[in-house]
């Protein structure tokens, strides 16, 4: 564990808590893409299959349980509890256009052609594009609530901090995972446009409204 990865995990944790607070306090899921949350649930389920078979640390296990638990709770809030406030008309991204190519790529490009490894690779690739339905929804509605912007900023920062973690681990431990790094770079790049809007607008107390 290093400071970059710890900050990354804390940023990820913060993002999930911000999202849950937004939903619980406003009792509304307006502006939130249920499809992205379903993709995140798929990512965590696929990645944490080893939750019961390989023990890394208490921290690792607790975080995995928390991430899986909260993402399914989020889906429950969107599609059941606060269903009336879910804006399905604007949440229209065709996720099959993500899942099929990502699934195929995981079969072709992986570290080891073994079931658990292919599923792990699938979760890494899927995570890099899982935010697209959410960004697509914001581009369709033309705006994002400030709290949703904070959620996206924390979520985007988490993987950017992981990139720093991988640089550190390469020099400190000789650890290098090309698949995770490439997917992490793609994932972070997808947030760049949003980061720009967040820093130039939200930081000045304005709301994000597209086109910028």
């Amino acid at each position: 564990m290093n400071i970059f990865r710890l900050c990354g995990d804390m940023s990820h944790l913060a993002a999930i808590i911000i999202l849950l607070l937004k939903m619980w306090k406003t009792r509304s899921v307006a502006g939130i893409s249920g499809k992205s949350q379903i993709l995140f649930a798929t990512v965590f389920t696929a990645r944490y299959l080893d939750l019961f078979t390989s023990f890394i640390s208490i921290y690792n296990t607790c975080m995995k349980v928390f991430f899986i638990g909260t993402v399914y709770f989020t889906i429950y809030l969107i599609y059941m509890k606060f269903k009336a406030t879910y804006d399905s008309n604007h949440d229209s991204f065709r996720v099959e256009f993500l899942i099929v190519p990502v699934g195929g790529l995981a079969f072709l490009v992986n570290h080891e052609f073994a079931p658990l490894e292919i599923i792990w690779t699938f979760s890494i690739y899927l995570e890099s594009v899982a935010i697209l339905p959410q960004l697509f929804m914001i581009s369709k509605t033309g705006e994002a609530e400030t709290i949703t912007s904070h959620y996206l900023f924390a979520l985007g920062s988490y993987r950017a901090l992981y990139l720093c973690n991988w640089i550190y681990r390469y020099y400190a431990e000789g650890f290098f995972d090309l698949i995770a790094v490439v997917a992490g770079v793609v994932q972070t790049i997808l947030y760049c446009d949003f980061f720009y809007l967040y820093i130039t607008k939200v930081m000045k107390g304005k709301k994000i409204s597209l086109p910028a």
Binding site: R5, D9, H12, R47, D50, S54, I56, N60, M63, K64, F67, H111, W120, Y162, N165, Y170, E173, G174, F175, F176, D177, L178, A180
Partner: peptide
């Protein structure tokens, strides 16, 4: 450096 066989990151 090889990648860890076990994925130790979240």
């Amino acid at each position: 450096g090889a990648k860890l066989g076990l994925h130790d990151e979240l």
